[in-house]
Design a protein around this nucleic acid. Structure first.
Length: 436
RNA sequence: GUGACCGUAGCUCAAUUGGUUAGAGCACCGGACUGUGGCUCCGGGGGUUGUGGGUUCAAUUCCCAUCGGUCACCCCA
């Protein structure tokens, strides 16, 4: 490994780029089906766009530098601030609710690990201007539909959903002081990943009594709609009713099989205000595929309009790992339509003329740039994945004729060259769809 | 940022207690094939064994550092 890409960055060879393209195409397809339109912003932003609300500690995880105009610049680590700015600038002019999506490349200066690089592409889908949980259901249904279209079923991927307000009400009712809420969330977030007594000690250190500690330790048990509805939630009754409605809507939108209520889903970002969700592989081997939720106060806090909003981010790295593990990546795209080969009595310029005419008709065409024997040319044609080869200048063939050879079964026919070219075209050569 | 493990052709792996010019398969290029692909046979290119030091008569092998990768923390996307 002499000089590869920077740590945490990827070279996309054709095979890898084909995988990325497959993911992107699916993202765009589903976004389109759900009525979302695509936008984009600059990959470089003022540093303060991220430091303002997120605090200075985020600077340590940013790619940042000072440009030649002495401006503090950052490579964007997330898309939401850009979205907030763009929506805010035209808030009054936009038809609400806004349904926008983007596929930005995002950057984080962190130590790279599996499923977590210093760069990734992330589908962002957001809805701005709708406060009802219909929007939450619509958004999650879109994320689920992406899984389905990629071939990932409910046995592969689960959608865990929770609601900040229900958890808050439950903790209040259990006697957890408001001031300890943030610390308790941090414990809940990793309650399954660390020993029970460690969690209990941390909770006690936050000033929780024995019954409150027990209540917090019960949070991961709340994994059904019924159990959540039965909870004592101080001031969270409306949220529970909304949550029930949300589940009903997701069901109606066809995502019910994936749905898994789980009150212990916290999500790291502090700005979430309501329903939060994450998609993860059912085996629990990988990092989260997707995370999102409602952030009703963010736009206003960012100096923008007071509009309710919600959204999710879905990265290409973990998703790609899961698709490869399940062998759901498509076979490499079909190669060439036609390979133009030339024998003894034809030259490369003849192949060029024929190629040019075929290309003008929309076909994918290649020929041997280095003069090769016919056997080499046909070998190269097969290696390039060509559907058929047209052989020019074969003996016993009239000057205006050529041999067309199907490369899958070797079937050959003689054609009048001009007629054959005139009939060739993308429509006449529709490729069979590729399968995984 | 902390800790642990791992680095040999593009890929997967070899190399007897440290012992000659570090090998193989696949892939790539070419020849047999001056008129028809996938097979076969033959040949070729490609490694300063991640890098830099150290120990030794001798280092792919042992030691240190560094870089990179993986994993767990941290944090999150």
């Amino acid at each position: 490994m002499v000089s590869g890409a920077l740590p945490g960055f990827r070279d996309f060879y054709p095979a890898e780029l084909a995988e990325r393209t497959h993911i992107f195409a699916t993202w765009r397809e589903v976004a389109h089906r759900f009525g979302f339109v695509e936008y984009d912003g600059p990959p470089l932003e003022p540093l303060e766009l991220y430091t303002k609300k997120s605090g200075d500690e985020i600077v340590g995880q940013l790619y940042n530098f000072v440009d030649k105009g002495d401006r503090a610049i950052a490579l964007r680590p997330e898309m939401t601030p850009t979205l907030a700015r763009m929506v805010a600038a035209r808030a009054n002019a936009l038809r609400k609710p806004v349904r926008w999506f983007s596929i930005p490349q995002l950057f984080r200066y962190e130590r790279a690990q599996r499923g977590r690089l210093r760069e990734h592409f992330q589908l962002n889908m957001d809805i701005v201007g709708e406060s009802d949980v219909t929007a939450d259901a619509e958004l999650l249904a879109a994320a689920i539909e992406i899984m389905r279209l990629l071939g990932l079923g409910p046995d592969d991927v689960r959608a865990r959903v929770s609601d900040r307000r229900i958890l808050h009400g439950y903790l209040l009712a259990a006697g957890v002081p408001d001031a300890a809420f943030g610390g308790v969330l941090a414990v809940v977030d990793k309650i399954d990943r660390q020993p029970r007594d460690v969690s209990e000690e941390k909770l006690a250190a936050l000033g929780l009594g024995a019954s409150a500690v027990r209540a917090v330790m019960d949070v991961p048990e709340q994994t059904s709609l019924a159990s959540i509805q039965a909870l004592n939630v101080q001031g969270g009754e409306a949220a529970v009713a909304e949550f029930s409605r949300f589940a009903e809507y997701v069901e109606a939108l066809g995502g019910g099989e994936y749905l898994q209520p789980d009150l212990s889903i916290v999500r790291g970002l502090a700005y979430y205000t309501g329903i939060v969700f994450e998609l993860f592989d059912a085996k629990g081997e990988l990092r989260a595929i997707c995370g999102g939720g409602r952030y009703d106060n963010l736009l206003k806090q960012s100096g923008g309009p007071d509009l309710p909003a919600l959204g999710f981010g879905m990265g290409d790295v973990v998703l790609g790992e899961l698709l490869r593990a399940r062998t759901l990546m498509p076979a490499p795209a079909a190669g060439l339509d036609v390979w133009v080969a030339f024998g003894e009595s034809a030259g490369v310029s003849d192949a060029m003329r024929v190629s040019s005419r075929l290309r003008a008709r929309g076909l994918s065409v290649e020929y041997a740039l280095g003069g090769q024997q016919l056997s080499r040319q046909l070998k190269a044609a097969a290696a390039a994945g060509a559907r058929e080869a047209v052989i020019l200048g074969a003996p016993d063939v009239a000057p205006d004729e050529a041999t067309v050879r199907r490369l899958d079964d070797g079937h050959e026919r003689r054609v009048r060259l001009d007629e054959w070219i005139d009939e060739a075209g993308p429509a006449a050569s529709a490729r069979s769809p590729t399968h995984s």
